[in-house]
Computed example of a mutant assay.
Amino acid sequence: MFSDLAVPKADPILGLTQLFAADSSPEKVDLGIGVYKDEAGEVPVLATVKAAERWLTETQMSKRYFSSAGNDAFNSATRSLLFGAQSDAFTRSRTVQAPGGTGALRLGMDFLRVARPGGRVFIPTPTWTNHGHLLAAAGCEVVNYPYYDVATGKLRFDAMMEALQDLAAKDVLLLHGCCHNPSGADLDADGWRAITDTLGRSGALPFVDLAYLGFAEGLEEDTYGIRLLARRLPEVVIASSYSKNFALYRDRVGALTIVGANAADSDRAYEHLMPLARALWSMPPDHGAAVVAHVLGDALLAADWRQELAEMRTRINMIRALLVKHLGGAARDYAFLSRQRGMFALLGLSPEAVRTLREEHHVHMTGTSRANVAGLNIANVERVARAIASVSDL
């Protein structure tokens, strides 16, 4: 039976990892994998995470099962972080813990088939590659809408708004909460208001992927879009992740949060989520969620974590500015990179240019020229900029 299976298409990210591992150059630079790296090129464990893990080791007395909803303290802390504990949205919302942001997205997509049967899911072009895979696995009909122009480094806002006029009441609009992956180009306040108005007129449901909370402008600033949607619309779905802002990548810490028109509606939706989560993973892993719950529930640790998050955000923005500075002599103007936020940027390079960067300059990125700028540091950013400039016209 297995011998009859076709050879599957290789995953581009995993393939990139293998190519990077095989590169023997001491100057090789990995701009492909989506993890935050510090100035030493390491993927750090945050000090606040270490402190919470020590506390868990000393105080956790049992590894018993929780429910399919996961860690209650984590779920409450997530809603508080998203909306504020005293907000109306906090009262109207319910959260289910999930294995990472990917798990939250899949749970949400399975829920959409129950809540909005026959509806389409509008996703931006470009978007995170896994969005399409998850929607296909969940059996959702996908409609692509224009979002970003790689050639100019700008949002295609007018084209996007024109495409969204086709939204209908059963449809779902997938949005990036901040730090758009792969472009780094985010909606501004006017953009969020325009989209909220469109959703209000159409009755379509917003589904926000919030994987990089705190990496754009700050924790409060990065929740602007979801808080606006929750204030002005009856229903919102949010998939959030702590992989980046807590650097808990392999601990798989995510959450799906639903906001209903009232608490009773959210309770009803929550009861529908439970059997879906039970069928997908029965119970999500607790260690990372317990870490997050402890940090956010301790005022001193929470303040320290906010500082650690600010330092990561500041370093990324500093590297973006340095990259633009050193790209000053390139064939194209890369100034847009300093206006964008988060770890990712689309450089607009050809496949030939990407291959040349890898083979001749030992700079590794995906074939679409999506670069993780957090993989750069002060020691290598000028060399990498020169390499990018040298291939920009290929």
Rank of each mutant, 00 (worst) to 15 (best):
E53R: 13
F66Q: 04
G288K: 03
A264K: 02
E39S: 12
A389C: 10
F246P: 05
A303H: 03
A40L: 05
C179Q: 15
T196C: 05
A279L: 13
A302V: 02
A137H: 09
R268P: 05
R315C: 10
M318G: 14
Y242A: 01
H361V: 06
R268S: 15
E58G: 11
D30Q: 15
A22L: 10
T78S: 07
R341W: 12
M312V: 09
I238W: 13
S67M: 10
V354Q: 04
P124V: 00
A374D: 10
T91G: 09
M161Y: 09
F83R: 01
T152H: 02
S87N: 13
W305Y: 13
T95C: 13
G342N: 09
T356Q: 12
N262L: 07
T48N: 06
L347Q: 01
E221A: 11
V363I: 11
R106K: 11
I319V: 12
L175Q: 08
L280H: 08
D265E: 09
R278F: 08
V373M: 12
T366R: 03
K50A: 10
G342W: 00
A22G: 00
G203S: 14
V35L: 07
F215I: 04
L14A: 08
N377E: 05
A387N: 10
S87V: 04
T196S: 06
A371D: 01
T17S: 10
V208S: 03
S338T: 05
R355I: 02
S3L: 15
I226G: 01
R320D: 07
F74M: 10
V96D: 00
N144I: 00
L112H: 07
Q307C: 15
H294E: 02
S369V: 15
V143I: 05
D393H: 09
Y334S: 07
R339N: 08
G153D: 15
T257L: 13
G342M: 13
K37M: 06
D209M: 14
G348Y: 10
I13T: 05
G108P: 03
C179W: 01
T95W: 02
E382Q: 12
T17H: 08
K50N: 08
E352G: 12
